[in-house]
């Protein structure tokens, strides 16, 4: 079963493994026919499309929960929703066969939104976005498995826009997954701050959607990826 859920703002500091354990406990509470791993310490099988960076809220996170027996989508959604803590909201469940590709392999990018607090720093960052998009490269430090690396982060950002919001600015962008991995919203924000010549700006980051590439090359929400 593919499940779309929200990891609310209040949980943005909860790490990936903690989230996984919390959802496994919710599944245990739900009584849904989950699958257990074999071995001495059996645990509930569960896989996420893409781990969310700590500090970012996830509006439509996607996970795959293999089941022992078939379940009605609506019923599954309701049952799991009841078993989840309030800041974890189940948005949708979609039954797919076992032969559905692994989610992780489908991820092509994500829609990121950053809400900036009004102020001079935010003005400067907002103004720095168009020149950033117009340029071909922007070198920033990016943490990877092998330590901190200088990377050109510009190619990760395939689309971006900024507009005033009630409380400052809303900055939206599409971040693409590349061979060398993905780009954290905080790294992008740091680069924009550097470009704008400001120390930092108060902001909150959201991942609004995880994206997959459809057969025609278009980016679609991962949970819509067709089964063929």
């Amino acid at each position: 079963m593919i499940v779309v859920f929200e990891k609310g703002l209040v949980l943005r500091h909860i790490g990936h493994l903690d989230l996984m354990r919390s959802i496994q406990r919710a599944l245990r509470r739900s009584g849904l026919p989950v699958r257990y791993s074999n071995g001495f310490n059996p645990h509930i099988q569960l896989s996420f499309a893409s781990p969310l960076s700590v500090g970012v809220a996830g509006m439509r996170e996607v996970m795959d929960i293999p089941l022992e027996s078939e379940c009605d989508e609506a019923e599954f959604t309701q049952t799991l929703a009841r078993a989840m803590p309030a800041p974890l909201k189940v948005r949708r469940a979609r039954a797919v066969p076992d032969t559905f590709p692994t989610l992780m392999a489908l991820v092509a990018g994500s829609n990121i939104r950053m809400e900036l607090d009004a102020g001079q720093a935010a003005d400067a960052v907002a103004a720095a976005l168009p020149p950033f998009m117009a340029s071909d490269d922007c070198v920033a430090l990016r943490k990877t498995k092998s330590g901190e690396n200088s990377t050109n982060i510009r190619p990760f950002v395939t689309q971006a826009s900024v507009e005033p919001s009630g409380t400052g600015y809303t900055l939206r962008c599409v971040i693409a997954n590349r061979a060398e991995g993905s780009l954290k919203p905080s790294v992008l924000m740091k680069a924009l701050c550097d470009l704008a010549g400001v120390e930092a700006v108060p902001y909150l980051a959201y991942r609004d959607a995880i994206l997959a590439r459809a057969g025609d090359g278009a980016l679609i929400a991962l949970e819509e990826y067709p089964y063929v």
Binding site: G8, V10, H13, G15, A26, G55, P85, P87, E115, D117
Partner: peptide, 27 residues
């Protein structure tokens, strides 16, 4: 405006100590 507590949480070591929202704490 982002809440002052939220801003402070961005800068501490284990912010999840202070955020609550756990199962069975909805009073």
């Amino acid at each position: 405006m982002i809440d002052r507590i939220e801003q402070l949480l961005e800068r501490v070591e284990k912010p999840a100590r202070y955020t609550g929202g756990e199962m069975n704490t909805e009073v």
